[in-house]
Structure formats: C-alpha cells, structure tokens
Amino acid sequence: MSQDGTLKAKLGLDVFKPAREPHILIRPGMERDPRLKKAVLACPAGLYSEDGNGAVTLSIDGCLECGTCRIACGTEVLDWNYPEGGTGVQFRFG
C-alpha cells in the first residue's frame, strides 16, 4: 500500500483493547481464494495483504470492526465474528 505509514499512524490514534483470540479468521484452504483478495483493497485498516505466492494473510490488530471484509468476501472464505465483549476498538468520538 502506498500510504502505509500514514495509515499506521491513524490507527495509532484509536483506542484498542486486546482480545484473547482473533475475531476474524481466514477459513483453512481459502488463503488463495479470489474472493479473499478483495479484502486487500477493501479493508479500511489495511489489515489484509497478499504474499508473493498469492496467499492472503490477515493481521487483526487495528481492526475497526467495520464489516467491509465480510460484505466484500463473504462468509465462505471468512469465519467472521465481532471480538468478545469489552475488547477491540473503543471509539471516543464515533
């Protein structure tokens, strides 16, 4: 991503409370599914990236819980849930 430094700085402004487990998982075997690649462009936090072998990985830290990846990719490739209560992003302005 072209403006990755800016994005990391912006995510650093938000309040995040750590969860014990990642709340979104790429379903096993779906790492190279074309539907999953849509998340690389669509995620407003830039948390999805494609490696040199065409496999998509997800790093959940900084997730804004917006739901875009669930809509863009679908639930066949993503095991999607909200983080457990009292964890994840806590907006102060919203």
């Binding site: 991503m1 072209s2 403006q3 994005l7 849509k38 462009l41 995620c43 875009t68 809509i71």
Partner: peptide
C-alpha cells in the same frame, strides 16, 4: 463496496480518504 473491489482504478480503501 462492489465498486471498491471491482471497478478501476484499483485503489486501497484508506487511500481514498488520504
């Protein structure tokens, strides 16, 4: 979201706001 992932130019979501 459909335009974001299917339509040219392929621009990452955060870059639109930047």
């Amino acid at each position: 979201i459909r335009d974001l992932v299917e339509k040219e130019p392929a621009l990452a979501a955060p870059d639109f706001l930047d």
